[in-house]
Simulated assay, not measured.
Amino acid sequence: MPVAAACPISLTASQRHRLKKMAYGHKTPHQSRMRAHVVLHAARGRSNARIARETGLHVDTVRTWRCRFAEEGMSGLADRPRPGRPPAFTALQAAQVKALACQLPAETGTPLARWSYPELAREAIQRGIAPAVSASTVRRWLDQDALKPWQYRSWIFITDPDFRAKAERVLDLYARTWQGRPLDADEYVISADEKTSIQARCRCHPTLAPGQARAMRVNHTYGRGGALAYLAAYDVHQARVFGRTEPRTGIEPFMNLVAQVMSQEPYASAKRVFWIVDNGSSHRGQKAADRLTSTFPNAVMVHTPVHASWLNQVEIYFSVVQRKVVSPNDFTDLTHIGDRLRAFEDRYNATAQPFQWKFTTSDLDDLLARLDRHTADHQQQSSVTLAA
């Protein structure tokens, strides 16, 4: 029988460049590398048998990739789709497991607080969704929709009936506005609060500094050296912090902080100084506002809504203190803590910039609208459950 002639191969400059990159690239897979060599040899007019000898491939393999390139070009060197093993589970079964993961275990009568992959697989088998399914299969299904039912976040629902009005006043002050009018140059906004119970934990062995491929090491056991409270007032627009330490929180320590700020310029002679505080016992209610005004006539106390300390910018500063000063906690005594906090205040004030506060009254309206929709949906679901 006559032998079929080898497919002639002619390359464009672009194809030759791409094939050489495939054939000699350091990160090219071995199969792609060999296919590129076959085509490059064929473009030089060599026979299939010679290419097979030089590349170590079978002549049928050489013939296959030579013909595919001749027919399809560069796309012919890629693997063709393979049917593979038929799927063991249907799309409906995967959707049912995902729907189960989006339910609370208590709603299904399962005595669990959170789902895990093995528990979901077990529940799917018990419900007859699938005769058998592994935890790794459940993991792949949930990963497709980024479902992580074992994670949770705590939150507090709005209970303050005047939430919007109180929050709007705070947000307006951050935007240098009060009752619809811009603040004057001699009006200031102070955000104040207390960071309670900063403990002095003296480690029983010295803390080891970090090294190559080794994190800082802090001994687990420690001796207690007492605790103190850190009170701070943050000038929102000047990015300046005033702090003090006290044995405990209360009305008197808070007023000491106010006096520390209001006794110095420019606050002493300012037209008005707005003090934004939360509803802690040290400055709660109208009595606290009257106490502040009677002591300092140019001071105005503004409360955040109940359970909305996240509106108080000084909390951002406290988070910085927690990360950079307090943690890990390794202090010999309370004096050591006080010295460290005061030194950090000086360091912070030297380079601080105002926080880029982006939550506005428009964002507040969007938040309240979402919560209203959530409440309505929850009430509707409760009504359906009770009717059933």
Rank of each mutant, 00 (worst) to 15 (best):
A5P: 09
A5F: 02
A5G: 12
I9N: 11
Q15V: 01
R16G: 07
H17C: 12
R18K: 15
L19S: 06
H26D: 13
K27T: 09
P29W: 10
R33P: 00
M34G: 00
R35M: 07
A36R: 07
L40S: 04
L40M: 09
A42F: 02
G45N: 08
G45I: 03
R46T: 03
S47T: 14
I51M: 02
A52N: 05
E54S: 10
L57S: 06
H58P: 02
R66K: 04
C67T: 09
E72R: 15
G73C: 14
L77F: 03
D79P: 00
G84F: 02
R85D: 01
A91L: 14
A94Q: 13
V97Q: 06
A99W: 01
C102S: 10
Q103W: 01
P105R: 14
A106K: 14
W115T: 01
W115A: 07
L120F: 06
I125H: 05
Q126V: 06
I129D: 01
P131C: 10
A132E: 14
V133S: 07
V133G: 05
S134G: 12
S136H: 09
T137M: 09
R140C: 09
D143K: 15
Q144C: 03
W150G: 07
I156W: 05
I158A: 09
T159F: 00
P161Q: 13
K166D: 05
E168R: 15
R169T: 11
L171S: 08
R176C: 04
T177G: 01
L183W: 07
D186W: 05
I190E: 04
E194W: 05
I198Y: 03
P206W: 12
A213H: 14
R217L: 13
R217K: 15
N219G: 11
H220V: 09
R224Q: 10
G226M: 13
A227C: 12
Y230H: 15
A232E: 11
A232F: 01
A233Q: 08
Y234E: 07
Y234S: 04
T245A: 13
P247I: 03
T249Y: 03
I251T: 13
E252C: 02
P253F: 09
P253C: 14
F254H: 12
L257S: 09
A259C: 10
M262Y: 01
P266E: 06
Y267G: 06
S269N: 14
V273S: 09
V277D: 00
S282I: 00
S282D: 08
K287Y: 01
A288V: 02
L292D: 05
F296D: 03
P297T: 08
P297N: 12
M301H: 00
T304Q: 04
H307E: 11
H307R: 15
L311A: 04
R323V: 02
P328I: 06
N329Y: 00
F331D: 04
T332F: 06
I337F: 01
G338M: 04
D339Y: 03
L341H: 05
R342N: 11
A343Q: 12
E345Q: 14
D346A: 13
A350R: 14
W357T: 05
K358D: 12
K358P: 00
F359D: 11
T361H: 05
L364F: 04
D365M: 10
L367F: 12
A369V: 00
R370W: 01
L371Q: 11
R373W: 02
Q379N: 13
Q381V: 01
S382G: 13
S382E: 13
V384Y: 09
A387Q: 14
